[in-house]
Structure formats: structure tokens, C-alpha cells
């Protein structure tokens, strides 16, 4: 080790030592200042936050310059349209874009083109409901082709996402939540998967005499 290096080490260790002393000093000072008050804060775990894992949506439909993904040092950011300006007069929901896109379209409040250039071309709408019975206690799922074919073409779903045959596709909630099957669009662009939207898909009530099937572990439970 050469002289220079040693000097550097000495200097930096001195700096560290001073830093440590300063920090200790602060703690002492804080203790002295609060001598007449009970010292509590430091003894309670900061982990005990109410709703530890709750993610609240702050400021929905924020304008681009406040939304946290647009760069405010870019002047053009301020030329972009704030969503709320465009959503004026459209039917509201409390999730996703906070707009009911199906109603907005059905009521003719928006007229998105079906063709890139020709604003008169009409979509190929197919009105066919597919009912998917669900083993769990939630209402059965009704998949409506009508609302989907207003926006999408058959080839957007068939055959890559769904084989076009009733009951031929294995679908469950875990797949949907991970962005497969219905979750390719729902939870990304179409309405999201949250408590307020369960019944949009789970829309067919179970028969009055329906009871949840008992699990095998319950049926065979020797302690019963």
C-alpha cells in the first residue's frame, strides 16, 4: 500500500468518525430536548399501519401532467387531452376509466370507427350468450357475444384465446387474474377485475335450491 492510499484511508476514517460523533450528538440532543415529554414514538413499531396492503386509487382520471408517467419537462405533455374533458357526458362507473363504455356506445354517445378510414362501415355484431356454470357459490358466468363483437372481431378471440365451442375452454379466476383468457382484456383495457365488477360476468343467479358442494375432506371427516 502506498502513501497516498494510506492518507486517503486515514482521511475517510476521520470523516466517518466525525459523522458518527455528529449522529450520536443528535440522538443525545433529541433525548435532552424531549426530557419532559414521555419518549414513546421510537418504541412502537412503524409496521402497524391500518390497511397495510390497501391500494387506494388517488386522483382518478388525472390529467397527463399529473399522472406520474408523463414527463412535465416535455412541453407537448401539456398539449395532451385530460381524460375528464373527453369523458364529459358519458355514463360513469366507479372502476377502470370510470366510464361505462358499453352504455356510451349503445346510446350513441361515442361513435368509434370500425374501419380505419370509412366512418360508415358497420361492425359485424353477433348476439349469442354463452352460459358457463360455476362450481362455486358465485352466480354463473354469462359471456355475451353482442357487447364484444361491437368492439372486436371474431379473430381477436378465436382461436388464439378461445376455441369457438361452448365449454371447450378451461377458464378459472386464477388464469383471469394473471391476464389469461378473459383476463387478456379485462384488467388491462376492458373493465378490471375487482369487487365492484364480479357481477358483470357472474350475472346469472344460481337456482334457489342450489347449495355449495361439500368438499371430500368434510364428507370423510372422522371427527364429525
Amino acid at each position: 500500500m502506498n502513501h497516498k492510499n494510506k492518507m486517503m484511508m486515514l482521511l475517510s476514517s476521520a470523516a466517518l468518525a466525525i459523522f458518527a460523533v455528529l449522529q450520536a450528538g443528535q440522538v443525545v440532543a433529541a433525548g435532552a430536548a424531549g426530557a419532559d415529554k414521555p419518549l414513546m414514538l421510537a418504541e412502537v413499531s412503524a409496521a402497524n399501519i391500518f390497511n397495510r396492503n390497501l391500494k387506494k386509487q388517488k386522483n382518478p382520471n388525472a390529467p397527463p401532467w399529473e399522472d406520474g408517467i408523463h414527463d412535465t419537462t416535455n412541453e407537448a405533455t401539456f398539449n395532451l387531452q385530460p381524460p375528464l374533458e373527453a369523458y364529459k357526458g358519458l355514463p360513469k362507473t366507479s372502476f377502470g376509466n370510470h366510464v361505462d363504455w358499453v352504455k356510451a356506445l349503445d346510446q350513441g354517445l361515442i361513435k368509434p370507427r370500425w374501419d380505419r378510414l370509412d366512418s360508415n362501415e358497420e361492425p359485424f355484431v353477433m348476439d349469442l350468450d354463452i352460459v358457463r356454470p360455476v362450481k362455486a357459490s358465485v352466480p354463473d358466468v354469462v359471456f355475451p357475444h353482442r357487447q364484444h363483437t361491437e368492439w372486436l372481431f371474431c379473430s381477436n378471440c378465436h382461436p388464439a384465446i378461445f376455441i369457438p365451442q361452448k365449454g371447450a375452454n378451461q377458464i378459472n379466476m386464477s388464469a383471469i387474474l394473471l391476464g389469461k383468457k378473459c383476463g387478456v382484456c379485462h384488467g388491462k383495457v376492458s373493465f378490471p377485475i375487482e369487487t365492484k365488477t364480479c357481477k358483470k360476468c357472474h350475472s346469472k343467479p344460481k337456482p334457489a335450491d342450489w347449495k355449495p358442494p361439500l368438499s371430500e375432506a368434510t364428507l370423510k371427516n372422522p371427527w364429525k
Partner: peptide, 19 residues
């Protein structure tokens, strides 16, 4: 940055995702 909300007011999904 691509805003879906802005474009879906003007075009159906089919225009971009099929055509």
C-alpha cells in the same frame, strides 16, 4: 405513451388489433 382511452373513443379495438 399510448393512451387507450383516447383512441377507443375514435376507433374500435378491431381497427388496431385485427386490421
Amino acid at each position: 405513451v399510448f393512451p387507450h382511452w383516447f383512441h377507443r373513443i375514435r376507433f374500435r379495438c378491431k381497427v388496431c388489433h385485427a386490421d
